[in-house]
């Protein structure tokens, strides 16, 4: 596995024909070929959701959405970066929800579109982390926030599901809401509470 591994791959990225050694990601290939790329690059480890791309593979009419940092180049691939600002549509504050009995009602006030889901499945198709996004929205609509949030452990907030939704639901924010209320109202670890209480009483100090 030394120099012989340098097989070259031809592909097109953002309309530029590029020839790069195999074993590069799309972003690395673009840089390798000498093209600048600043926007749309982030953690380069698949957790920030910055490098959304459209990908069309050779001999295929399908176009999928993926993360450019995780995407290994292939012969004949056509790639287009998706760089656009996606502001969330709604605002809410957790401390405005008086108690956990009110969460569901508040949810529907904050995300009125969520109940309008037409079940097209586009959000699930587009998710580069293979999350069952549509199911998550459905669970949240039913008030099953813990379950809804659980589905989104891998969510990197790339916002692809937000632009994919024809009903202007923001599934990723729905999911994050679900996760946040779960922690805010239901995470009450006794080990933490005991420790905080001891510290409040000044029973634990640090001697430098």
């Amino acid at each position: 596995m030394t120099e012989d591994a340098k097989k070259l791959i031809n592909l097109r990225i953002n309309g530029k024909d590029i020839c790069a050694p195999e074993a590069l990601s799309v972003i690395q290939a673009l840089w390798y070929a000498g093209y600048p790329r600043v926007k749309g690059v982030g953690c380069l480890q698949g957790v920030c959701g910055s490098c959304r791309v459209f990908v069309r593979r050779a001999e295929s009419s399908e176009v999928s959405t993926e993360l450019g940092c995780e995407l290994l180049i292939e012969e004949g691939m056509d790639v287009s970066f998706l760089i656009y600002p996606i502001p969330p549509y709604q605002t809410y504050r957790l401390d405005e929800i008086p108690n956990s009995w009110e969460v569901q009602a508040k949810f529907h006030e904050i995300f009125p579109e969520a109940a309008q889901c037409r079940h097209c499945g586009g959000c699930t198709t587009t998710c580069p982390k293979d999350i069952d996004v549509e199911k998550g929205v459905e669970l949240a609509v039913k008030g099953r926030f813990r379950e809804a949030g659980e589905l989104f452990v891998q969510c990197v907030m790339c916002n692809l599901c937000q632009t994919a939704c024809p009903e202007l639901i923001t599934p990723n924010h729905v999911a994050l809401f679900s996760r946040r209320v779960t922690a805010y109202f239901h995470t009450r670890p006794s080990n933490l509470i005991n420790r905080l209480e001891k510290m409040r009483k000044g029973e634990l100090q640090v001697v430098e």
């Binding site: 459209f54 959405t65 586009g122 198709t125 692809l160 632009t163 939704c165 024809p166 009903e167």
Partner: peptide, 19 residues
């Protein structure tokens, strides 16, 4: 107007209109 089934259409048209 995109129905949402194909992300390349929904997101593609959205991105085109942004550009």
């Amino acid at each position: 107007s995109s129905c949402g089934q194909c992300p390349s259409c929904k997101t593609g048209t959205y991105y085109m209109s942004q550009l």
